[in-house]
Design a binder for these strands. Structure first.
Length: 854
DNA sequence: AACTCCCGCCATTGG
DNA sequence: CCAATGGCGGGAGTT
């Protein structure tokens, strides 16, 4: 390494530069005009860079070149292009081996840079680390699949909503410039968005599992994760444009102390540029600028593939079956965090976890709950070692026929079948997805709802329950289910209930291609925001008005509102009707998720009246489908009783991850789960197996995330929670209503389930209006077709997951308490519940803030 | 001055 | 202990 690693600048420049014969010309050009140079560069890109290919060739003339060589010539993006030029987009054999040393040498760059590139490529599964110093090249073969999954996850994470919120906050901030306010506002926004959010996690593809054990521990590395998150942002945002600042805010997510935040922000932005540069070289995004009143902000626009039909379809299916994975393969990942003895722990990112580990241990003793890892071991083994082959086979097979579920029964006959088969059964559920052009109209509707719900189920609940809750998502074609690990931070309840920004911000933004021309004025559009009546803040109102006034076309803006409301109401009614009709407990969960997930696209269609109809219809269809599915499922197992408790006990392994990941799970593991969970009842509902390691959670209390804990979340998390598998048994209509209410679809009886809701929440969530409120910006792109409307956020989003102390505890209990036997942990949890909530919060926050560690 | 973002120090990790 | 990794932020080039 020494030699290669860090050539000094001077030396580097002087001695060896990856210049090609054309380089001289280039240099001249660049000297003449940077713009020209850039353009030139751009042009070169696609074809394939000349320089890229033979970097090692000539050396430049020392000093001059040094001066002349623009910084851009060393950009990560260019480097990445060069790198990409060396490999085919669609390699036939997956065997393309990449040796970092070679690459570094050939491209003539410091190793460090290669890592940067590899990390983001890895996040897209274009490469996978096979061993030390070695990567395997996959090219774009898995790209679509990955993107689809990322999109899915992004939706689950509600990044779209988060972005909206953040934008909103930023706007507010602009208006009233109280420094303090500003900070708070942003922080709050993030907070709101984040709480309940899972932290960063890495998504893996079945085919691309970690080959080297060592890799596991590092999966949570920020660049990789950030990259995925960043991509998700694009995939979920309606106009596929993401401004740098918003992205950074979301990515920061952790803590928000003012000063630190600032620095963090800067750092994050730097990273984003790094990532963006490689994404640009992959032609997935392009740099643009969004212009609003305040001026122009750097942003990036997605220019990559838009649709991922297969996946979407599959997603729905997958989600239905999402299952919580107990211990699973996480082991490797976790190992770094907590050694079996717990003595050793070194966290890359979350030093604070150490403390947790200790606590956990203590807790364990107390609880003396189940064995830490028998299961886990088995699973891990399967997934890591033994299974690969099988997995591969499955994957291959799956890919070949998505439609068909026949999966090689291999070892886990029944189990596997169950998980996978659903696909076949479900077909009805997942109607062919139509291009989800938001504007297009009806079709999109179908898919959206389906997808979302599932997401919620796996992503949300878990997070709340325990710091790390693995969830398995059976993947249809992918070949394998994915396990998602949620970061503990997700748990943290949002501290302050911030009134949601009710005010609508109407903004017009314009995109400027980097070329610079701004869009014609005509394009300017405003995003209609629904004013939140709930929000009484004068300031917001003011702003609103002012905005409206300034706005060129207020009428437009307003338009959406009525529609939204109407549609929402209708939907609500429909849902209710359906719900009533079905009494199955299982169903309970469904409706809510759906409702929650109604997307902007779903709701707001330009179409107006027609839109509503479509929505209704689609909804109906969906419901019907669900019913069918439910029935079929129910047939299989009449009693949905969850074995959760059992599982939980077993699961206790210490699998704590710093971050969550999506990890492919072996069939065996699936089987295992199945057995445990016995989630016969609905394919859809995932069986959650909890394992919280010892309460990884800081605060012993809630963290315990045992099955019991689930109860807690549900109420709070309402939407997501609802879908939760818990079907234990209480599918009482009340719950349904509750959920719906939370969603805002139904106007609830006063406070239905008032208990649970926290003040803030109630205000935000409950009020239908607030729900509807949308805040967003409309981006107009010069070239793009008309403006797009903003996504409406039905739910306020906050997933009130954790909920505030108040609500969570008791009420939930009553509602959700599952009859199922509680594990010891559960019991504990229950008792300590309330206090716990709060307690938890603090520690978690601290984690990020104080990176002190050994 | 604001954007970009390269460079490389230095902490982690794994072996 | 060493080498591989990769977080991170100073500060330089661009706009």
């Amino acid at each position: 390494m020494g030699p290669l690693s860090t050539p000094k600048k001077g030396i580097e420049a002087g001695s060896v530069d990856p210049w090609t014969p054309t380089s001289n010309l280039k240099i001249l050009i660049s000297a003449a005009s940077p713009e020209i140079r850039n353009r030139e560069k751009e042009l070169c890109l696609d074809p394939e860079d000349r320089d890229a290919l033979d970097p090692t060739l000539d050396s430049e003339n020392g000093e001059e070149s040094e001066k002349m060589i623009s910084r851009k010539d060393k950009s990560l993006g260019l480097l990445c292009r060069k790198f990409l030029a060396r490999y085919p987009d669609y390699p036939k054999s997956a065997l393309n081996d990449i040796c970092l040393d070679d690459v570094a040498t050939e491209l003539n760059v410091e190793r460090r840079r290669i890592y940067d590139i590899m990390n983001v490529l890895e996040s897209l599964h274009m490469v996978s680390r096979s061993a030390k110093n070695r990567y395997s090249w996959h090219g774009r073969t898995k790209l679509e699949e990955t993107l689809a999954i990322l999109k899915q996850v992004g939706e689950e994470q509600r990044y779209g909503q988060q972005m909206q919120q953040i934008r909103q906050r930023l706007l507010e901030k602009e208006f009233e410039c109280d420094g303090e306010e500003k900070e708070n506002a942003v922080a709050a926004a993030v907070e709101d968005c984040e709480h309940g959010q899972k932290e960063l996690y890495f998504v893996e593809l079945p085919g691309v599992e970690f080959k080297a054990a060592s890799v596991n521990s590092r999966k949570d590395k920020s660049l990789r994760v950030m990259s995925q998150k960043f991509v998700m942002l694009f995939l979920v945002s309606n106009p596929r444009v993401v401004s740098l600042d918003v992205a950074a805010k979301i990515l920061i997510g952790e803590d928000h102390s003012a000063d630190q935040d600032k620095n963090k922000f800067k750092t994050k932005v730097r990273r984003l540029y790094d990532i963006a540069n490689v994404l640009r070289s992959l032609k997935l995004i392009e740099k643009v600028h969004v212009t609003e009143e305040r001026g122009r902000k750097p942003a990036f626009e997605w220019v990559g593939p838009e649709e991922f039909p297969q996946i979407q379809k599959s997603m729905a299916e997958c989600r239905k079956k999402s299952v919580l994975q107990p211990c699973a393969s996480v082991e490797n990942c976790a190992k770094n965090l907590f050694s079996s003895t717990a003595t050793k722990r070194s966290f890359t990112r979350h030093p604070s976890l150490i403390k947790l580990a200790k606590k956990i241990q203590d807790d364990r003793r107390k609880i003396n709950s189940a064995p830490s890892s028998p299961v886990k071991c088995a699973l891990s083994d399967c997934s890591n070692t033994a299974v690969p082959n099988k997995m591969a086979q499955l994957a291959a097979i799956c890919k070949l026929e998505l439609a068909q579920e026949s999966i090689p029964a291999g070892n886990p006959p029944a189990a596997a079948e169950r998980l996978w088969s659903p696909t076949s059964t479900d077909p009805p559920t997942a109607p062919p997805l139509v291009p989800q052009d938001p504007k297009a109209g009806a079709p999109p509707v179908t898919h959206t709802p389906l997808t979302r719900p599932t997401a919620g189920s796996f992503a949300y609940i878990p997070s709340q329950c325990s710091p790390l809750i693995p969830v398995i998502l059976p993947q249809q074609h992918g070949g394998g289910p994915y396990a998602v690990y949620v970061h503990p931070s997700a748990l943290r309840p949002n501290p302050q209930a911030r009134p949601q920004p009710t005010s609508l911000a109407v903004r017009s933004m314009t995109f400027e291609e980097k070329t610079g021309h701004s869009p014609p004025g005509g394009y300017a559009s405003k995003s209609p925001l629904v004013p939140a009546m709930a929000d009484g803040s004068p300031s917001s109102l003011k702003r609103l008005f002012s905005d409206a006034a300034s706005d060129s076309s207020p009428s437009k803006a307003k338009k959406p509102d009525p529609n939204c409301k109407d549609s929402s109401t209708k939907l609500g009614n429909i849902l209710q009707a359906h719900l009533k009709s079905r009494r199955g407990g299982c169903l309970t969960s469904r409706p809510s998720p759906r409702a929650l997930h109604l997307d902007p696209e779903f709701l707001n269609t330009p179409g107006g009246a027609s839109t509503n109809q479509t929505l209704d219809q689609s909804l109906e269809n969906l419901l019907d489908k669900d019913d069918r599915a439910a029935n079929s499922d129910s047939e299989a197992g009449s009693t949905p009783v969850r074995t959760v408790p059992l599982i939980s006990g077993q699961i206790h392994s210490e699998t704590l991850l710093p971050a969550g990941y999506l990890i492919p799970i072996s069939q065996q593991s699936l089987n295992y789960k199945e057995g445990c969970g016995g989630e016969t009842s609905k394919a859809q509902t995932p069986t959650y197996i909890y394992q919280t390691p010892t309460a990884a959670a800081t605060p012993p209390q809630a963290q315990e995330a045992t099955p019991t804990s689930l109860c807690l979340h549900k109420p709070t998390a309402s939407p997501h929670a609802a879908q939760h598998p818990h079907r234990l048994h209480s599918p009482s209509p009340a719950i349904l209503n509750f959920t719906l209410q939370n969603l805002g679809l139904i106007s609830g009886p006063g406070n239905a389930t008032p208990t649970q809701q926290t003040p803030e929440r109630s205000s935000t969530v409950l009020s239908p209006i607030s729900t509807l409120q949308q805040r967003g910006l409309v981006f107009i792109k010069p070239g793009s077709p008309a403006t797009i409307q903003q996504p409406v956020t039905l739910i306020s989003v906050q997933q009130p997951l954790m909920s505030t102390p108040k609500g969570a505890a008791l009420p939930q209990h009553s509602f959700f308490h599952t009859p199922v036997s509680l594990s010891p942990l559960a019991a504990m949890v229950t008792s300590s519940r309330q206090p716990a909530t709060r307690t938890i919060y603090v520690p978690q926050r601290k984690l990020d803030v104080h990176p002190e560690d050994s």
